[in-house]
């Protein structure tokens, strides 16, 4: 379990990174925290010709908490965001979900940008972003653009980023006054990818849910009907659970997450 050889680039600036991304295109993989990529390299499930390591890009490490959103630089680690009390105050859903991302030691290295760009449908953060209606900024030599969370995830491990684009910022909308949120998941062991998970935001009588692990992308559902939520998902069978069972979990998680979010909304409101 040793990685195949690769060319290694560690650009000093974002512009240099963008240039490399533009030149190398899909032949290069972007190395952020490496907590998902390196296992695949070690198992030789991925053998890119080159790695573009973003570790030197301190300009992508920041947490800016404003009234309406928490803007996070892509190279911010899970742990840094998890520890941010300001981010927690503005959007408690983030910390709640981050606490379920693998284990602390993995979160010390894993980055927010890496998790989102990796677009693992079983991961927590993409659902959080979708439930909140967040957005990301992406950059290329051609310029910068924003992508709404709803448009970002296109398939398993696939986003709408162009091959020359880099994800630079993730923006989580702040929770409105009187709103409540909850993230719940059911996993085999603590820290495992969820068999199913639900991010829920209840605000002004509206309920927004996004589910992990039950489709090729985070599954977004409005409303609190467990059966409707289950019907919206498209889980598959694997060694850990059947699709039917995952749909059942969606029903349970819908009730529980909505209940919890409403409870919290009442407390805060």
């Amino acid at each position: 379990m040793k990685p195949a050889p690769f060319e290694y680039h560690a650009p000093e600036t974002l512009d240099e990174a963008l240039r490399l991304k533009s030149e190398l295109g899909p032949e290069a993989s972007v190395l952020a925290g490496g907590q998902s990529l390196v296992p695949m390299l070690n198992m030789r499930l991925a053998s890119p010709e080159a790695l573009i390591d973003l570790r030197k890009l301190d300009e992508l490490r920041y947490i800016n908490v404003a009234d309406d959103a928490v803007a996070v630089g892509a190279m911010t680690t899970h742990r840094a965001l998890e520890r941010s009390d300001a981010a927690y105050s503005a959007c408690p859903l983030i910390r709640e979900a981050l606490g379920l991302v693998a284990h602390a030691v993995v979160r010390n290295r894993g980055t927010i940008g890496g998790s989102v760009a990796h677009a693992d449908p079983a991961a927590e953060l993409p659902s959080v972003l979708v439930a909140l209606g967040g957005k990301v900024k992406v950059r290329s030599l051609r310029g910068e653009r924003e992508i709404a969370a709803a448009d970002l995830f296109t398939f398993h491990f696939t986003t709408s980023l162009e091959p020359d684009e880099l994800l630079t910022e993730i923006s989580f909308p702040a929770l409105e006054q009187g709103a409540g949120s909850a993230f719940l998941e059911i996993s085999r062991r603590h820290g495992d990818y969820a068999l199913a998970g639900a991010a829920c935001v209840v605000s002004n009588g509206n309920t927004r849910l996004a589910f992990t692990g039950v489709g090729p992308i985070p599954v977004f559902v409005e409303g609190d009907d467990p059966d409707a939520a289950a019907a919206a998902t498209s889980p598959s069978d694997d060694i850990h659970a059947t699709a039917d069972y995952r749909r059942q979990l969606v029903r349970v998680l819908t009730s529980r997450a909505v209940g919890l979010a409403r409870e919290r909304a009442q407390v805060s409101g």
Partner: peptide, 15 residues
């Protein structure tokens, strides 16, 4: 089908 510690689930302290 589960030849890794990701899928062969040795319990952690939490289990």
């Amino acid at each position: 089908r589960n030849a890794s510690f990701m899928d062969f689930l040795v319990p952690y302290a939490t289990e």
